[in-house]
């Protein structure tokens, strides 16, 4: 009796999930392979003929803007993640270990960033004063700044489970403070570092709003901005738009297939403590 009930549950669950979560993706892929006329009918059907050249056209459209923006997105993602890992692991480590009024203040400053949104125009103004507005290094620093609170929270939380004794032993052996951090602490933080990397990489890569404000112009366009302009430009050829969607989702899919559990764990860690 019980077995039967679970079987029904399985089937019902599969059905609902299939309709609600899988069909939209199948729809995208199918329509990305149609010709323009057929794709614009927005039908959920197999293409009459498969047009794989749509994908090539996405690459060549607008003088290869796709590849250029893909490169930009990659640079921004990698750059900001590297900064986040280095700066926030150091900061989280000290914030967890040291007490005092200044530390309480720093902690408050960082944690309120979890809730408070970016002040957009004043940020542009500051970036202009620093001559970083509309530049890739500027965007990298901004993404790093915006994702600092979450990363520090993760590192600080993880530090709490690392015994202080290790550091004390190293200290007695005459290890310098920087050496202590680099040789003892940072390697111990490895599990949470991978969480920080994956979580931030996904968010930065998929970010639309911040590049829209802080990196306008086609010169440094990112992948999400390109998709948005693409949508306006090719609003009459849905096959191209969907091919673009497939291409920019592919990196995340690959990441997901390799690190499925890690991503899920990371997202949970990132949000539960938030």
């Amino acid at each position: 009796m019980k077995k039967k009930r679970y079987l029904i549950g399985d089937i019902a669950g599969l059905l609902v999930v299939f309709v609600v979560f899988i069909i939209p993706f199948v729809f995208i892929v199918l329509n990305s392979l149609k010709d323009t006329r057929e794709a614009n009918l927005l039908k959920f059907s197999l293409p009459e003929t498969f047009h794989f050249e749509n994908y090539i056209e996405v690459f060549t459209a607008n003088d290869g803007l796709f590849l250029k923006s893909f490169k930009n997105s990659m640079i921004i993602t990698v750059g900001s993640v590297v900064i986040l890992v280095l700066a926030c692991s150091m900061a989280g480590y000290v914030i967890q270990r040291r007490k005092g009024r200044f530390m309480t203040f720093v902690n408050f400053l960082v944690m309120s960033g979890l809730m408070i949104p970016v002040a957009i125009l004043p940020t542009i103004w500051v970036m202009q004063k620093l001559h970083l507005y509309k530049t890739l290094p500027g965007m990298i620093l901004l993404e790093a700044a915006f994702h600092t609170p979450l990363s520090i929270m993760l590192y600080r939380g993880f530090m709490a489970n690392i015994p202080v004794e290790l550091e004390e032993a190293a200290r007695i052996d005459g290890c310098s403070p920087l050496g202590l951090y680099a040789k003892i602490v940072f390697p111990l933080l490895k599990p949470i570092t991978s969480t920080v990397i994956i979580l931030n990489a996904v968010t930065v890569f998929n970010d639309f709003m911040n590049p829209l404000y802080f990196l306008p112009g086609s010169e440094n366009s990112t992948i999400q901005l390109t998709l948005y302009t693409f949508m306006g430009q090719f609003s009459n050829s849905y096959n191209m738009v969907f091919a673009d969607v497939v291409l920019i989702t592919l990196p995340m899919l690959v990441l997901f297939l390799f690190f499925n559990q890690k991503i899920v764990d990371g997202m949970v860690a990132g949000s539960v403590k938030g």
């Binding site: 700066a87 900061a91 970036m127």
Partner: peptide, 12 residues
């Protein structure tokens, strides 16, 4: 150890 984070976070 806080300096790199604080510089970026506070300025931007």
């Amino acid at each position: 150890f806080l300096a790199p984070m604080l510089v970026i976070y506070v300025t931007l």
